[in-house]
């Protein structure tokens, strides 16, 4: 049987739950052995939507599910062209929709990166691109880069896979950069529950964000990563959202420091999705200074 999944007209973070619900049944398995993705209604897709779509297709392919694309548009609209420019169609069908697709300078296009190659990608692609967009030198990016490195370490240590998708998008009209990273591992709630016992995914994902809480998937893990991510992004005026299993975690800056909350979702996200939104005008970055001796 073929399950038809109509991509929503506006494929953004708000549509993730419904999209996932269409693809994955309540038992956590794909709804059919073949999934047809129908692009005919798609009018808008952002970086998160694109990352979720790639991650889901990867998850389906890993489960030997056949994926079919139905474009259904005689003339390609701007967002299919955008996806084509990001390399989406070439990645999955080996053929771009247009012969002369080109990556835009507002995009670091979606890429699946394994742990071993993530550092090289960070140094040779992410860092120079971000320096230009934020108009800062690379020393200002140390903490932000560390956040992303921590996520790649989490993918390696906590998930059953060693690779994740990353997509970075600059939105000039709203002066913001969004960084979306996703993997298809077992997810944060499942790891936390294994260590701390049964609880809702909502509680598990909130617990995981606190400093010192770790699933101990690796003996030397001390539970720094998600707290570090939350603090670093919020101190730069940004927002973090994490979808994993049935849990959604949101962290934003507020007058008292950080506003962290979590929600129980109706649909299970297959793996973990981290989305970082950075308003460019509020980006401060790291303090610059001479290298010094560490004082205990």
């Amino acid at each position: 049987m073929v399950k038809q999944v109509i991509l929503p007209p506006d494929f953004n973070e708000k549509e993730i739950a419904k999209f996932i619900h269409d693809v994955i049944g309540p038992d956590g398995f794909p709804r059919e052995s073949e999934i047809l993705f129908d692009f005919s209604k798609l009018r808008f897709v952002d970086g998160v939507g694109l990352t979720v779509l790639c991650n889901t297709i990867d998850w389906l392919m890993h489960k030997k599910i056949r994926c079919i694309f139905h474009i259904g548009q005689k003339y390609l609209n701007d967002y299919l062209v955008y996806m084509d420019d990001c390399g989406f169609f070439e990645k999955y069908t080996n053929t771009p929709l247009r012969p002369h697709r080109a990556v835009r300078d507002t995009t670091l296009p979606i890429k699946k990166i394994d742990h071993a190659h993530s550092q090289a990608w960070m140094d040779f692609h992410f860092t120079p691109w971000m320096c230009i967009k934020l108009n800062v030198n690379k020393n200002k990016l140390s903490s932000l880069k560390t956040c992303i490195n921590e996520i790649f370490n989490n993918i390696k240590d906590h998930s059953s896979f060693n690779e994740g998708f990353i997509h970075v998008q600059h939105y000039p009209r709203i002066n913001r950069i969004d960084i979306s990273i996703s993997d298809i591992g077992v997810g944060i709630p499942s790891n936390i529950k294994r260590k701390y016992g049964e609880m809702s995914d909502k509680d598990a994902i909130l617990k995981a964000s606190q400093e010192g809480v770790t699933s101990k998937s690796h003996p030397n893990n001390m539970g720094i990563g998600l707290d570090y991510l939350s603090v670093t992004v919020a101190s730069n005026g940004g927002r973090v959202s994490i979808h994993s299993g049935y849990g959604l975690y949101l962290c934003r800056p507020d007058r008292n420091g950080l506003d962290r909350e979590s929600f129980q979702m109706d649909a299970m996200y297959p793996g973990t999705l981290v989305d970082i939104q950075l308003p460019i005008e509020r980006f401060i970055g790291d303090e610059e200074g001479e290298e010094e001796e560490f004082e205990w």
């Binding site: 020393n139 140390s142 921590e150 030397n220 001390m222 990563g225």
Partner: peptide
């Protein structure tokens, strides 16, 4: 310029 918690731990 930067280190992760995994490395330090």
């Amino acid at each position: 310029s930067e280190v992760t918690s995994s490395f330090i731990n």
